[in-house]
């Protein structure tokens, strides 16, 4: 707890210091932009893409930012993170100048705006809980299953491009901790499910019913880890319009209670 308090204090201190400025002091400075790009690639690219094109995190190369379009808005998000998402606070890991240089780099992208999807959120919600069967595995608020990732705040943490990719090719970029574990027992049975954990001596998995299984490697024939998704592709089972409706619904999931 002591560290949490200290971390929060330091983060707030960096933010407080940074927020005295509205605009990055390095705005337009080529050297600082180059340094900001290097820092971005080191700290941010794993989620936001090496070219800031987005990935698990939203794209940052479109000149528009969910938290606001002033430099200080971007600064605040980097320093404090986004609660409820995977975006951590970098205020304790980066200096104030370093964060402002990342901001200067991100402001080099021309404003093209985020992709607009022509869909209807209410129809998407109906598909989610109805014909799509999404709610059988995914939770939104307190409603839904827990076999797949919780989607309560998915609209805050994923780009529309990433959501579309997850819908059509769910195995392409698996969420952390959603690999498949397949176990063959000594009597020839195969048990597979979402891996809760795997190491050099054991594996834990949840099958489709949600039941937990735990195995020691020495007790079974084999344990394999597969980086595939148990979620089916919705490329053919949903029409293009239904996919767009579903995307718009998921974009709107930003942490409110299940509708």
């Amino acid at each position: 707890m002591r560290w949490r308090v200290l971390t929060l204090f330091l983060s707030l201190a960096v933010v407080a210091a940074g927020q005295e400025l509205e605009r990055s002091p390095f705005h337009g400075d080529e050297t600082s932009i180059g340094v900001g790009k290097a820092s971005f690639r080191l700290r941010c690219s794993a989620c936001h893409g090496i070219h800031a094109e987005g990935g698990k995190g939203p794209p940052l190369n479109r000149g528009e930012f969910a938290a606001g379009n002033r430099d200080v808005d971007i600064y605040r998000v980097i320093a404090l993170g986004v609660p409820g998402t995977e975006m951590p606070a970098y205020g304790t890991r980066n200096t104030e100048e370093n964060i402002w240089r990342i901001v200067a780099f991100l402001r080099t992208f021309e404003a093209v705006g985020d992709e607009r999807v022509d869909g209807d959120a209410e129809r998407g919600e109906a598909i989610f809980w109805g014909t799509g069967g999404c709610g059988g595995c995914h939770k939104v608020g307190r409603r839904g299953g827990s076999y797949g990732p919780d989607l309560t705040r998915i609209g805050r943490s994923r780009s529309v491009q990433h959501l579309r990719e997850a819908l059509l090719d769910p195995g392409k970029d698996l969420p952390a901790g959603y690999f498949v574990v397949k176990v063959v027992t000594r009597d020839g049975r195969t048990i597979s499910g979402i891996g809760s954990g795997i190491d050099d001596f054991s594996a834990q998995l949840r099958d489709a019913s949600g039941k937990l299984h735990s195995f020691l490697r020495e007790d079974v024939e084999s344990i394999e880890r597969e980086f595939t998704s148990v979620m089916p592709s919705y490329g053919e089972s949903l029409s293009d319009q239904q996919q767009r409706d579903l995307l718009v619904y998921m974009q709107a999931l930003r942490g409110e209670e299940s509708r």
């Binding site: 340094v35 290097a38 690639r41 080191l42 240089r101």
Partner: peptide, 20 residues
């Protein structure tokens, strides 16, 4: 990934980064 960057004292001087 490689990229050119200028040197600034006390800042990362990596010339870009790796990706899994």
């Amino acid at each position: 990934h490689g990229a050119t960057q200028d040197f600034v004292e006390g800042e990362f001087y990596l010339g870009s980064a790796m990706e899994n």
